[in-house]
Each structure stands twice: as structure tokens, then as C-alpha cells.
């Protein structure tokens, strides 16, 4: 029995990659297993926990609810990419200062989720922050520190300066 395979070319964190994949492999497994980008995590594989949140063509998606083959031709960004570019340095610093993480498993997904809010809703209230991240499960923090860190970053960005 030979399993179906497909060749895909896509951009990941700014670099073009070409790989053969099984169509059944979801994007998060592809990033982790195929490209060793282990910063994004598998949490539930049914689209509920948000640990696998990555960006595809500029929008956040659940990495477990998208197949790698679907990402052919797309631009994918992961926590590794946004860390290297420094795009989220202020948010990451605010998370650090506020201790908005404990075990860290949800953190990369939480950061990418929050980043979308920073872009789309610069005047977000605490309630809006909570609503926006309500698809990302954190068992350790109780969420408050995360909300605080996002709020701090929003405020700092509005003031046109970085948080740290």
C-alpha cells in the first residue's frame, strides 16, 4: 500500500520550502515534524485549545484544522519567525515582565493570537482582550496576567513607544 503524497511549496517565516507531504498531515504536524519548528504546539487536534495557532497569509489559523497541502503557495509565520523578526518583542517583553505564562505550552499560540488583536483593535478594552483570546486555553495563569500584558502592549503602542 502506498499512501498518497503531494509536493508542496510554501513560504515559512520568509523562506521558501518545498517538501513532500501526506495529504492527511495537518499544518502543525508539518511545521513540527517536517520543518522542526517545534515552537507551535499540538494541544487537542480538534481546534479547541489554540496551542497550534500560527499565521497563514497574515491571519491567525488553527494549525490543526488546516492541512499542510492546503498551505501550498501560502506564507506561514510561526513563533520562531516573529521572534526572529522582532515583531512581537514588546509583547513578549510585556508577557515576561508580567509573568503572563507559567508552563509556556500555550504561550506561542497566545502571543500570535494577541498579535492579531494588537493589529486590528488598537483600542481594545480588557473585555475585548478577554474575548479575543477566549479561544486559547491556558491552565496555569488564570488569564489575568495575559490580559494585563496585552493591555500594557496596546497602551504602549498607542503611545508610540515600546513597553520595555
Amino acid at each position: 500500500m502506498t499512501l498518497p503524497e503531494a509536493e508542496i511549496t510554501l513560504t515559512v517565516n520568509g523562506r521558501s520550502v518545498r517538501r513532500r507531504v501526506e495529504p492527511r498531515q495537518h499544518l502543525i504536524d508539518f511545521l513540527r515534524e517536517g520543518l522542526d519548528l517545534t515552537g507551535s504546539h499540538v494541544g487537542c487536534e480538534h481546534g479547541v485549545c489554540g496551542a497550534c495557532t500560527v499565521r497563514v497569509d497574515g491571519r491567525i489559523v488553527r494549525g490543526c484544522l488546516m492541512l499542510a497541502v492546503q498551505a501550498a503557495g501560502c506564507s506561514v509565520e510561526t513563533i520562531e519567525g516573529v521572534s526572529e523578526s522582532g515583531e512581537l518583542a514588546d509583547l513578549q517583553s510585556a508577557f515576561h515582565q508580567r509573568n503572563a505564562l507559567q508552563c509556556g505550552y500555550c504561550t506561542p499560540g497566545m502571543l500570535l493570537c494577541a498579535a492579531e488583536l494588537l493589529e486590528t483593535t488598537p483600542n481594545a478594552t480588557r473585555a475585548q482582550i478577554r474575548e479575543h483570546i477566549s479561544g486559547n486555553y491556558c491552565r496555569c495563569t488564570g488569564y489575568q496576567a495575559i490580559v494585563d500584558a496585552i493591555e500594557t502592549t496596546l497602551t504602549a503602542r498607542r503611545a508610540g513607544r515600546t513597553a520595555d
Binding site: 489554540g50 489559523v61 488583536l117 479561544g135
Partner: peptide, 12 residues
């Protein structure tokens, strides 16, 4: 629309 799941799901 805002009641449908969460931001990442609504994007897709």
C-alpha cells in the same frame, strides 16, 4: 458572527 467560535476559526 461574533458568537461563532473564536477569531482563528472565523478567519478560516
Amino acid at each position: 458572527a461574533p458568537h461563532i467560535a473564536h477569531a482563528a476559526i472565523r478567519n478560516s
